[in-house]
């Protein structure tokens, strides 16, 4: 089936090829058995598996959204208590398809790490919706770690709601999958609410990374900070779409957005559409994007210390990624990420 996903909130010229992405011949699995290889580490929070399905404001289109609502083989509703939660989905030959639906009700401060990894060489399919709400004065740290193998398909639709004085720190580690589509939307409703989103991506071979981040600021003195660091090698294609929308009434709100793409090959393609939309006067918005190859003087310096070209490039990529990986609270997962980067840039 051909599907069109990741529509930007505002269209621009069709010729620029960035309003959405069309994927051909996608097989969307239905009627699945339970995903058996999910491990959940949690002591206190209430975890159940009934979710009221409400339509997403953006998301990955009707087909994939209905796929989650009608065919999920893993549903988690998490009502947070103060603790660290870790959820690991390990794909294997018997568990190749995961359609999961997660709802996080942030009643108390909580760290949540969600990891997807492949213990198989076969194509894995992952389609998910993760909704989170940070209640008043609550701080949620949510990390999504995608280490799926390089044949996989990965679809993520994320939707956050922030109440007064709440914080959501989101970290997305996009290392895996042949085709990875991420749709992220935050509704920053509360006054003094703060959404911080940091992510990394690594594209190799003929991989496609399509990233669509949308943050709407409604609350007074609300704040958003988006920082995206990526690297593209071989024939990889990346589309980054980042929108900060200052809605009327979000007085003294601030929004920052920064994307940097390190190009490691002359065939890689980096597209970016960093949008600032604004209907409020008393705001401060900034965005910047940059692309370029590895800095030669930096490379030279490292190599003059006896490091090979390949290792030097790896060091430079990792140095850009590390400040974002550092945010993940789980040491074990952190090491897995580091190993995966080494392996992939190996």
């Amino acid at each position: 089936m051909d599907i069109i996903v990741n529509e930007t909130p505002v269209r621009t010229s069709k010729n620029y090829g960035i309003n959405n992405v069309k994927l051909n011949d996608i097989k969307i699995p239905e009627k699945l058995n339970e995903f058996n290889n999910a491990k959940i580490y949690s002591n206190k929070s209430k975890i159940s598996n009934k979710i009221e399905n409400e339509k997403l404001a953006y998301g990955n289109g009707k087909i994939l959204e209905d796929n989650v609502y009608n065919n999920s083989n893993n549903i988690l509703k998490i009502e947070t208590e103060k603790e660290d939660i870790k959820i690991v989905y390990e794909f294997d030959d018997n568990n190749l398809n995961l359609i999961n639906n997660i709802e996080i009700i942030g009643n108390k401060n909580c760290n949540i790490v969600i990891e997807y990894k492949s213990n198989t060489d076969k194509t894995c399919f992952h389609n998910s919706i993760i909704k989170a709400i940070a209640k008043e004065n609550v701080k949620l740290n949510i990390s999504i770690v995608n280490l799926l193998n390089d044949k996989s398909l990965n679809f993520e639709a994320i939707e956050n709601t922030l109440e007064n004085n709440s914080i959501i720190n989101y970290t997305i580690i996009g290392l895996g999958a042949k085709t990875s589509i991420t749709n992220y939307y935050s509704k920053v409703l509360g006054n003094n609410a703060n959404n911080d989103l940091k992510s990394i991506y690594l594209g190799q071979k003929d991989e496609l990374k399509d990233i669509n981040y949308i943050v709407n600021l409604y609350g007074e003195k609300s704040n958003v900070d988006i920082d995206v660091q990526g690297a593209l090698d071989d024939n990889a294609i990346k589309n980054f779409k980042g929108t900060i929308d200052f809605k009327n009434g979000c007085k003294k709100a601030k929004g920052n957005e920064n994307e940097f793409c390190l190009l490691l090959s002359s065939k890689a393609k980096s597209k970016a559409l960093p949008m600032l939309l604004c209907t409020e006067e008393a705001v401060e918005g900034n965005h910047s994007t940059a692309s370029g190859s590895v800095d030669n003087s930096e490379l030279f310096y490292i190599m003059s210390r006896g490091v090979s070209y390949k290792e030097a490039v790896k060091l430079i990529v990792k140095s850009r990624f590390n400040k974002i990986i550092e945010r993940i609270s789980d040491e074990y997962v952190k090491n897995e990420i580091s190993d995966e980067i080494d392996r992939r840039l190996g």
């Binding site: 190009l263 559409l273 960093p274 900034n286 910047s288 692309s291």
Partner: peptide, 15 residues
């Protein structure tokens, strides 16, 4: 929209 199709470039955009 910034559409960069080669690595040997210096590109920056600020708004």
């Amino acid at each position: 929209v910034n559409d960069i199709r080669t690595d040997d470039v210096i590109f920056s955009h600020e708004a």
